[in-house]
Simulated scan of single mutants.
Amino acid sequence: MDLLMFAFVAVIPVISYGFTVHGPSGPLVAPLGSSVVLPCYVDEPLPLDDLEVQWRRTDSETLVHLYQYGERPEVQQQDYHDRAHFFTDQIQHGNFSLRLDNLRAEDGGNYTCKVYSQQDSGETVVQIKDVDRLLVSGSSHSISAPVGEDVTLNCSVDSHIKPEHIEEVSWRKTDEDEDILVLLYLNNETFPDSSDERFRDRVEFFTDEIPKGNFSLRLKSVRTEDKGVYICHLFAGVLSANTTVILRPSE
C-alpha cells in the first residue's frame, strides 16, 4: 500500500483589459514530498523592465515568491525559501508558473498569482485541495512464533516517502483493560527507554530500513504472555493510520 498525500490544484482565471492570466484546464495531482507546478501565464510576453509578479497565500497574504523589475528579491516567507521557484528562462515568454518543492500537508490552501505591468494587471487564484490518505501495510493475518525465538511484526509505508515526513510511529499492545507502549519513534529518533518494562531491551526497529518507510518491529525471545494484538500507528502532519498484527506464541 502507499502512503500518499495528494494535492489537487485548480485555477480560476481572471480577465483584465490588458491581458488575461491563465492557469491549467483541470486539476493537477502531486504526492506528499514531491514537486507541484502552479501554472500562471499570459498569452503574449510582457516587457520585463516594469514587470512584477507576486505569488501569495490568499488566506494570509504570505509572500511565497516575487519577481520584480527583472530581479527576484529575497523577500519570500521563510517556509517557502528554497522550495518555491520561478522558471526563470520562461518569464520572458510570459510564463510565471511557480514550482513548489517538497510538498507538505500544510501547503493546502489558496494561492494568488498577481501580474503587474505598465499596460495593466491581472491575477489568477490557485487552490490546492488536500485529499489525504495515509495507508500502512502490515501482516494481513495473525502470525505464530515459537516461544524463545525472535519474530518480526510488519509495518511499512511507501518507500518514496521521506522519513522526516513521518512524525511519529508507535507500536502498542492492546489488551482488554490496558494499552501497553511497546516502542516509540518520534521526530526521527527511537526512544527505547519509553517501552513498557515487559518489552524493554526486547524490541527494536530495523534502523537501516526506516529510510525505506519500513517501521517493522523485531520482538526478541517471544514469551507466552506476548500473545495479543499489536498496533502500529503512524502520524504524518494531520494524517494518521495504523495496521494491526495478532501474535500467537507457540510452544
Rank of each mutant, 00 (worst) to 15 (best):
V11S: 14
G33K: 08
Q92F: 13
V36P: 02
A10Y: 13
V182Q: 13
I246T: 13
T112I: 08
I166Y: 05
L100Y: 01
I128C: 09
P27H: 09
D82S: 09
L134G: 10
V157W: 06
E168G: 06
E189S: 12
S216I: 12
V182M: 12
N154G: 09
G148M: 15
N102L: 04
S250A: 14
E44I: 05
P39M: 01
T152P: 04
G26H: 12
I15Q: 05
A236E: 08
S16M: 04
V131M: 08
S35F: 03
E74H: 10
V126N: 02
V157K: 05
I246E: 15
S121V: 01
Q127L: 10
T190V: 15
Q90R: 11
P47G: 07
L48S: 12
A236Q: 12
H85S: 09
N95F: 15
D50I: 05
D59E: 13
D43M: 13
L3D: 08
L98P: 07
M5W: 13
G109N: 01
F215Q: 04
F8T: 14
K220T: 12
T190P: 01
R133G: 04
F87E: 11
P45M: 03
Y185C: 03
S194F: 14
D107R: 15
Q77W: 06
N154L: 06
G138L: 10
Q54S: 04
L135N: 13
